[in-house]
Simulated assay, not measured.
Amino acid sequence: MSKIRFHIPAMTVALAVIAAGCAVSAKDDSTIATGKATSALAAKRSEPYLYMGWGDPPSPSAVMNATGIRSFTMAFINSSGGCNPAWDGSRPLTGGADANAISEIRNAGGDIVPSFGGWSGNKLGPNCGTPSELAGAYQRVIDAFQLKAIDLDIENTDEFENPTVQDRILSALKIVKDNNPGIVTIVTFGTSTSGPNDTGKRLIDQSKALGSNIDIYTLMPFDFGSSNIYNDTVGAVEGLKSKLQSTFGWSEAEAYGHIGVSGMNGLSDQQEMTSVDTWTQIRDWGRGKGLARLAFWSVNRDRGCPGGGVVSNCSGIAQSDWAFTQVNAGF
């Protein structure tokens, strides 16, 4: 499932997306074994994507002051060669623009969740040879920023559609959960208009079989052949909810509490259009159902440019700056 993706060095269209997690109370051993939730997720997560290597990145504190948003999903951690994590696989993990942005956000009273993966770039999943090695790469990032949550954006075909790598990621997340009590783990992946495709369903089944104990399953409802973003987002979430209920035995409320939505503001690669009003409608529906998180791709694009098409630094539609972020802050 593709998302607006710009391959930055070549400035060619290739995009990437998405979103982030939610706090859960501790589960006992029987809960971890069965995947059943013992309590509702403690807090909703509203964390739109911010990308410091692309799309004229804004000052995060300025966006916070203008909108009330308090958290961002920072894109993307990938491989700088082998099993070594770096921002975009090229910028240093610490001491660069990304770390500076994280400090700015925290100094303004906010926080971040890093996203591993995305569409383009060299991924850690295929490069780390074992679940333990991959968990070690995740741990380096957790330790560097004292993280409370991580997002795995599993959309690249080398990760999502490769069963060996998919299982490696899910097994690594189990290790992360075991070694970091209380950390929130999120997986973000593409969808059809009626819910996860067969590969997405496999990911959910394997997360139970491997004891991954994922907190939030986030769908990316865009670039999925939509004729009505609101209706098709609702349809996708309802399909995921039914799959989570059947896999884990959760109630409807429990299933909704483990679901996130990560949309695409303005125009998608397929020219699907999400207006500010539509995003507000999705937010209100998701909030009413008790969804765990809401994100979108991206804050960099949350600026108006009617007729601008699908570009890196604006939405392609008429809007006021940071309008989608302001909607998200009300989640």
Rank of each mutant, 00 (worst) to 15 (best):
residue 49 Y to K: 10
residue 134 L to W: 07
residue 180 N to D: 05
residue 48 P to W: 10
residue 303 R to M: 05
residue 245 Q to F: 03
residue 199 T to E: 04
residue 235 G to L: 08
residue 203 L to Q: 05
residue 138 Y to A: 05
residue 174 K to E: 09
residue 149 A to E: 15
residue 128 C to N: 11
residue 47 E to D: 09
residue 281 Q to D: 05
residue 301 R to K: 14
residue 213 N to G: 07
residue 25 S to D: 15
residue 230 Y to K: 12
residue 311 V to L: 11
residue 40 A to R: 15
residue 291 L to I: 08
residue 80 S to P: 08
residue 14 A to P: 00
residue 133 E to Y: 09
residue 248 F to Q: 06
residue 280 T to E: 10
residue 140 R to G: 00
residue 23 A to Q: 15
residue 88 D to H: 14
residue 195 G to K: 02
residue 309 G to F: 10
residue 327 V to P: 03
residue 307 G to K: 09
residue 256 Y to Q: 01
residue 208 K to L: 06
residue 222 F to H: 15
residue 54 W to K: 10
residue 102 I to N: 03
residue 240 L to G: 04
residue 284 D to Y: 10
residue 285 W to P: 00
residue 217 Y to P: 04
residue 197 N to E: 06
residue 182 G to K: 03
residue 241 K to D: 05
residue 5 R to P: 02
residue 169 I to T: 08
residue 269 D to V: 12
residue 286 G to E: 07
residue 267 L to F: 05
residue 50 L to T: 02
residue 266 G to Q: 01
residue 73 T to H: 00
residue 106 R to D: 02
residue 182 G to A: 07
residue 141 V to Y: 03
residue 171 S to E: 15
residue 234 V to C: 05
residue 302 D to I: 09
residue 304 G to E: 04
residue 187 V to M: 07
residue 163 P to R: 07
residue 2 S to Q: 13
residue 218 T to G: 05
residue 137 A to I: 06
residue 228 N to A: 13
residue 102 I to H: 04
residue 135 A to E: 10
residue 17 V to F: 06
residue 330 G to S: 04
residue 10 A to I: 12
residue 89 G to H: 07
residue 238 E to L: 13
residue 172 A to L: 04
residue 54 W to E: 12
residue 256 Y to D: 06
residue 46 S to P: 01
residue 112 I to S: 01
residue 290 G to Y: 13
residue 169 I to Q: 08
residue 258 H to N: 14
residue 172 A to R: 12
residue 220 M to N: 07
residue 62 A to L: 08
residue 249 G to R: 09
residue 194 S to L: 11
residue 25 S to E: 15
residue 198 D to F: 02
residue 120 S to Q: 15
residue 191 T to P: 00
residue 41 L to A: 14
residue 130 T to D: 04
residue 163 P to S: 14
residue 298 S to M: 06
residue 110 G to T: 03
residue 24 V to D: 13
residue 292 A to R: 09
residue 121 G to F: 12
residue 123 K to Q: 15
residue 38 T to Y: 07
residue 16 A to E: 12
residue 40 A to Q: 13
residue 309 G to L: 01
residue 241 K to W: 10
residue 244 L to D: 06
residue 282 I to N: 03
residue 166 Q to N: 10
residue 273 M to W: 11
residue 192 S to P: 01
residue 101 A to I: 00
residue 271 Q to E: 06
residue 31 T to S: 13
residue 286 G to Q: 02
residue 110 G to H: 03
residue 183 I to N: 03
residue 195 G to Q: 08
residue 186 I to P: 00
residue 12 T to E: 14
residue 258 H to P: 00
residue 3 K to C: 12
residue 7 H to G: 05
residue 298 S to Q: 11
residue 265 N to E: 10
residue 112 I to W: 02
residue 109 G to Y: 08
residue 234 V to F: 01
residue 136 G to P: 09
residue 6 F to Q: 11
residue 93 L to I: 09
residue 325 T to A: 02
residue 312 S to A: 15
residue 256 Y to C: 10
residue 132 S to A: 15
residue 276 V to R: 01
residue 86 A to S: 14
residue 108 A to P: 00
residue 260 G to F: 04
residue 108 A to N: 03
residue 213 N to M: 09
residue 222 F to A: 13
residue 48 P to V: 10
residue 165 V to R: 12
residue 303 R to P: 00
residue 117 G to N: 10
